[in-house]
């Protein structure tokens, strides 16, 4: 549990560094009419959807036992 917290924190720190960095320079995320921002949004939605379906799957597996 403790380990997982640390892991989450480090991922968050990395993400924030990425965002801070993005504001300083014109990067990939701002090229091509910022279309890659949409791409990242779509990926997050997809990830959320899969996590949800995966968890429902696990719950049903537990019921089956």
């Amino acid at each position: 549990m403790h380990n997982r917290k640390h892991y989450l924190l480090s991922v968050l720190a990395m993400f924030m560094a990425l965002v801070a960095n993005a504001q300083e320079q014109t990067d990939v995320m701002r090229s091509n009419g910022k279309i890659y921002v949409v791409m990242v949004v779509v990926l997050v939605i997809l990830l959320g959807l899969f996590v949800y379906v995966w968890r429902v799957d696990k719950k049903i597996s537990r019921l089956e036992k």
Partner: peptide, 24 residues
């Protein structure tokens, strides 16, 4: 019904679709 390799495959294929769908 309960195997998981094809579920992971589906995830990978859709991540590929949602990235290369924009990049290609």
């Amino acid at each position: 019904l309960r195997k998981s390799w094809w579920k992971i495959l589906s995830f990978l294929l859709l991540v590929y679709t949602c990235t290369f769908g924009f990049l290609v």
